[in-house]
Amino acid sequence: MSMLNVALPKGRLGERVLSLFEEAGFSCPAIHEPGRRLVFENPEVGVRYFWVKPSDVSIYVERGAADIGVAGRDILLEYKPDVYELFDLGIGKCRMAVAAPVGFRDDRDRTLRVATKFGAIAKAYYASLGREIDMIHLNGSIELAPLLGLSDVIVDIVETGSTLRENNLEVVEEIVPISARLIANKAAYKFKGEAIGRILSALAEKEG
């Protein structure tokens, strides 16, 4: 049996995805053993898991190092990988939104300064509004930018909104809802379609 290579996003979301896959019959006892190994396999059910940085999952899948993987819709919209997006797992739900200091009023007469990690999403969103922006690409602590006057607004993922509230920021526009998606490499889908189909139908059954 050829192994199905699965890229899991490191972190809480990945742990939940793993338990979904295990419930679907693709268990892997080795992955629960403590240690520093990166790759875990269970030849009996034909699965090989590996943890990768969440934003890298789509790269592993697009390039075929992983046959399938789980990535947030934010990553898929930002990097537009050439993959199949087969299933909405309905977990890791949050939203991509524009946030600004409480009471912010947009001055349409000025270029809007936007700080974000998600350059492509922000660019496409403001292009659709015909709004000229000055994009400030940051890699973390995006909320800090409007507080220090680096930007007018931020485009970022909002889960509960508590970080925003604590920093006197609020959502002013919602861009798109986000959740975790099962993605597949296009060639792997042709040659390992049977195994991928089993995972899909188990997930669909669970969703009921």
């Binding site: 075929g64 190092a65 050439d82 490499n185 060639a187 040659f191």
Partner: peptide
């Protein structure tokens, strides 16, 4: 078209 061991069409 796809062939085994090539990750894209």
């Amino acid at each position: 078209g796809f062939v085994p061991r090539v990750s894209a069409g």
